[in-house]
Design a protein around this nucleic acid. Structure first.
Lengths: 346, 346
DNA sequence: AAATGGATTGCCAGCGGTGGCATCATTCCA
DNA sequence: TGGAATGATGCCACCGCTGGCAATCCATTT
C-alpha cells in the first residue's frame, strides 16, 4: 500500500556510483568530459535505481523546460493526426508535449500565445495552420527569442523554422487527371479569403490549369469557409448557373461533402454529371458514397519531421535544423467521385 | 531587438510592493493569511510588472508540477474534441495540459503510463477511453497515489474519479424510434469484444429491446473493430443472411458508414429497405447521404466537467470532487438513415 | 500594566539539479 | 626534470519558489 521509497535523486545515484553528483549530471547530459569507465559505472547505477532526473529542477537550473508546445486553432482530425505525429517525433527525445488552443475569450492571438509561452516556458513551439500563417505571431516570437516551427504552405527566408507543404505537384496531378477525362470547365471553392493555405491551393490550381492552356474564370471561384454548410452554399451557386462546371475542386474535404450533398439533391449524379475533388484526405473521404477523390496530406509524417527538426534546432542549433527536409508533398488520390466529363454539358 | 528586461521574479514583486517575497508567495497561492490591503498592494505590483510565477521553481519547492496529463490511445475526432473540452475546463486554473499517447514500441500500457507520470510529475491524469477502462492501470495509479479521472462507461465505487457516460437513455430513445417505425428485427455490430464501452452499448440495447418484449439473438450480434472495414465485413455478414434485420445499430459511426456502403453495393436502399444507426455523432455523420441517425456524445461538455472535477480534487480534495456531476448522457439524433420498416420483409 | 492570543509578516533552509570555477592526475614537450 | 597542456572530477553557489517557524503587531483580558 505504501510506496515508501520515493523516487531517487541525483545524490542517490552519485553515492551508489561513488562519484560526485556533478559527474552524474554530466552523464545525464551526455557531456563528453567523462571517462568511459566512470560513465559506465554511473549509467549502471542509474539503471539499477531506475533514476529519472527531475525535469523541474533541471529546468530551473538550466533555464530550460524540456517542454515543447503545440498551438492550434480548431480541434479537427487533421490536428489530431498532427499531434500524434509530433508525439512520435518527440519519442525518446526527453521532451514532452504541452498543448494550447485559443480560448474563445481571447481575441488577441498573438498576446495569447505569448502568454502561453511565458507561462509554460516551453523551449519551442509547433504552430499548426492557420495559426502558423500569422506573420505578426512569428515576428513576436522572434522578438522574444522563442524557437518555433511552422507547419505552413508558404516558404519563408528561414526554412529551418518551417515544414512547408508544396501543393503544386499533387494539384497538378489532379488537374491532369481531370483534363485527361475531358474536363475543361472547372469550379473552385476556396477557404476564407485571408487563409493563406487556401490561397496557395487556388494559385496551384490556376497554375496547373495554365499548363493545359485552361483558365479558371473569377466567376467560378466561390469563397467558402472550410465548413460543410459553406460547401453546400458554394455548390448551389456553382451548380445553378447555366455554364456550370463539369468538375469542382473544393478547398477541403468537408466542403466537398457539401457539394456532393447538393448535387445529390439536384439530381446531379457524381461522377456521371459532375466530378468532385476534395482536399485533406482524412479517412472520411473514403467512407462516403461515391468515395471522394481527394488530395491526401501526410500529417503524421510532416508532424514527425517538424518535431524532430524543432528539437534539433533547440539542442544543436540552427545548422542542425538546416539539415532537415523542409518540403513535403501531398498526393492525389483518385477515387470514385471523379470520372469522364459528361458529353452533353449544359 | 533586445528585450533586455527578463521576466520578473517574485523578488521584484516583493520589492515593488514593499513586502517580503514570502508574502507575495502567499498572495499567489491564495493563502487566507494576508491582510486585504497588503494583498491589494501585491496584486497591483504583480499586474504592473506583468509577473507570472515560474512553474518550475514553484513545482520544485512545493512538489507539484501544475501539469495534468491526458492519456489516450488513437487520434480521433472524438479525442480532439475531448482535448478541446479539457483545455476549456483548465482555462484559468493555472494548470497546463501535457499529452501522451501510447507509442507502438511500448507493449505494456501500464508501465508506459506509469513512466509518463514519473517523468512528467503530472499532478493528475485524465484517461480517455479505452485506456480509461483498464482496471490494472487504475490500480497501479492508485498504488502510487496518482490522482486520475476516467472518462468511462462504467460506474465504479469511487465516482469522484470518473465521468461516466450513461448509454441507456439515448439507446432507449433510439430503440423506441425504431420500434415505433415498425422494426422488430435488429442487428448489432459491436466493437472489439474486450472493449467495455462496446459491451455497455450492447447491454443497453438489449435492455431497451427487452422493454418492448423484443430480443437480440446472439446470431445477429457481430463483432467489429470500430473501423470502417470491420463495419463492412459485419454488414456483409448481417445483410446476406435470409433473416436479415430491418435495422442495424452499429457500435460507432465509422462502422455504420461501412454498413451504408455495403448496403449501397448490394442494392439495399437506406432507409427504405434498411435503417442504420451509428454511435458517436461526430460531424461526419451529418455529411453522408443519407445523413446518419446516430447517438451524439458530448465530448466537449464531458471533458470540461472532467477537467474541472480533477482540478477540484487536486486542489481541494476528494470531497470537493464529490460535489461534481458524474453522469453524462448522450442523445439520440434521428436523421435520414432511419425510417419505417419495409413491409415485405422476406 | 503585564499577560494572552490571534492575525500578519519575515527569515532561512532547501527542493534537485546545473554553471563556473578549482583541483588533481596524467601526458607531453623542451 | 620542470612546466605547461589536457582530461577528469569535485566543490559550492544559485536557479525561483515554498515550508516551517520565529517575530512582530495589535487588541483584549486580568
Amino acid at each position: 500500500m505504501v510506496t515508501a521509497d520515493k523516487t531517487p535523486t541525483i545524490n542517490d545515484v552519485a553515492k551508489a556510483a561513488g562519484v560526485s553528483k556533478r559527474t552524474v549530471s554530466r552523464v545525464i547530459n551526455h557531456s563528453t568530459k567523462v571517462n568511459a569507465q566512470t560513465r559506465e559505472r554511473v549509467e549502471e547505477a542509474i539503471r539499477r535505481l531506475n533514476f529519472a532526473p527531475n525535469r523541474q529542477a533541471r529546468g530551473l537550473a538550466s533555464r530550460r523546460s524540456y517542454l515543447v508546445g503545440l498551438v492550434y486553432d480548431l480541434p479537427t482530425l487533421f490536428i489530431a493526426d498532427i499531434q500524434k505525429g509530433i508525439l512520435n517525433g518527440l519519442y525518446g527525445s526527453g521532451y514532452e508535449l504541452i498543448v494550447h488552443t485559443r480560448h474563445p475569450d481571447d481575441d488577441k492571438v498573438v498576446d495569447d500565445v505569448l502568454q502561453f509561452v511565458s507561462r509554460t516556458k516551453t523551449d519551442g513551439l509547433l504552430l499548426a495552420p492557420p495559426v502558423s500563417e500569422i506573420a505578426e505571431l512569428a515576428e513576436a516570437l522572434n522578438d522574444i527569442g522563442c524557437f518555433y516551427l511552422q507547419f505552413s504552405s508558404q516558404l519563408s527566408a528561414e526554412p529551418w523554422k518551417q515544414v512547408v507543404t508544396n501543393y503544386l505537384p499533387a494539384i497538378t496531378d489532379m488537374t491532369a487527371h481531370l483534363v485527361d477525362h475531358g474536363h475543361r470547365h472547372f469550379g473552385f471553392i476556396s477557404g476564407p479569403r485571408d487563409n493563406i493555405s487556401s490561397q496557395k491551393r487556388q494559385e496551384a490550381f490556376i497554375q496547373a490549369l495554365k499548363q493545359y492552356g485552361l483558365k479558371l474564370p473569377q466567376s467560378l471561384i466561390v469563397e467558402g469557409a472550410f465548413t460543410y454548410d459553406s460547401g453546400m452554399k458554394a455548390a448551389e451557386n456553382l451548380l445553378s448557373r447555366p455554364d456550370r462546371p463539369t468538375a469542382i475542386f473544393a478547398g477541403n474535404d468537408e466542403m466537398a461533402f457539401g457539394v456532393m450533398n447538393v448535387a445529390d439533391s439536384m439530381g446531379i449524379d457524381i461522377p456521371r454529371d459532375l466530378s468532385v475533388v476534395g482536399f485533406d484526405g482524412t479517412a472520411f473521404a473514403n467512407f462516403v458514397i461515391p468515395s471522394l477523390s481527394t488530395i491526401r496530406r501526410q500529417p503524421n509524417a510532416m508532424a514527425q519531421l517538424g518535431a524532430s527538426k524543432l528539437i534539433a534546432r533547440i539542442n544543436e542549433g540552427q545548422d542542425a535544423a538546416r539539415a532537415f527536409e523542409t518540403m513535403v508533398s501531398p498526393e492525389f488520390v483518385p477515387r470514385e467521385s471523379t470520372g469522364p466529363a459528361s458529353l452533353e454539358r449544359r
